[in-house]
Computed example of a mutant assay.
Amino acid sequence: MSEHLEIEFKTLLSIEEFSRTVDYFQLKPDQFFTQTNYYFDSADFQLKKRHIGLRVRVLSKNAEITLKIPEKVGLLEINDALSIEKAQHIVETATFPDSGNVFNKLAILGINKDDLRLIGSLTTKRAEIKLPQGLLALDESWYNEQHDFELELEVDDASNGKNDFIVLLDTLNIKESPSPNKIQRMILSSK
């Protein structure tokens, strides 16, 4: 389990900006990995109304369940590790565990786990690079007939991180394009 404050800056990229960034960092195809996020909410969108995100992320060898809750700065991210089999069971049945840090936080928030249902999914091919400024993620994502590209910089300090993000975009010759988070893009695309 982990619980930490996630502070990240992100921008959508054109395919040209994505390719240029791959070239700049000399990324090879084997440096990218694939993950699928499955998003959940209640029928009346109790989580969305509070700007909370709940996902099950499945990778090739492991999985996790994550709850993201807005804070004054960034998002409180609560994770519990899952086996691939347990993650697939949750995705197929929307039956969530009766224990764990995510379950406990949902209970505190007054969200009944039995009210949750799958609302959509998004698959991402991602490369991560540790930079002095923070963790850079370069994403290519597919969801609801959509295909997009995104650059994220996860940092420890919001004010320094914003400056570092702007400098990074300038270095890469990228114009910042506001990027709703992945669950927001997935929901908007399904309307």
Rank of each mutant, 00 (worst) to 15 (best):
T95K: 15
D41M: 08
S19H: 08
D139R: 03
E64S: 11
E71R: 08
E3N: 14
E64V: 07
K191Y: 14
N144D: 11
V102Y: 05
Y24H: 15
S2H: 10
L76E: 03
I111T: 03
D156F: 14
L27R: 15
T171L: 04
V22A: 10
K72C: 10
S177C: 12
R185M: 01
N181R: 10
S121Q: 15
S14H: 14
E77N: 14
S99H: 08
N104G: 11
A43E: 06
G74K: 07
S190C: 04
S121P: 02
E140G: 00
L118A: 03
N62Y: 12
N62E: 14
L172R: 07
S19V: 06
G74R: 02
E128T: 14
R55L: 03
Q184L: 11
E16S: 15
P132C: 01
T66V: 03
L131G: 06
L172V: 00
K86W: 05
K49S: 07
L54I: 04
F40D: 00
N79T: 13
I183M: 10
G161Q: 04
N173F: 14
I15S: 13
V102N: 08
P132A: 00
L135Q: 00
S159K: 07
K28I: 05
G53I: 00
L116N: 00
D164L: 05
W142K: 07
T123D: 07
D164F: 13
I129E: 07
G53Q: 01
K68F: 09
L122S: 01
L136T: 01
F149L: 04
G110S: 13
A107D: 02
L138Q: 02
S190Q: 13
L168I: 10
A87R: 01
D156I: 11
T124N: 06
D170A: 05
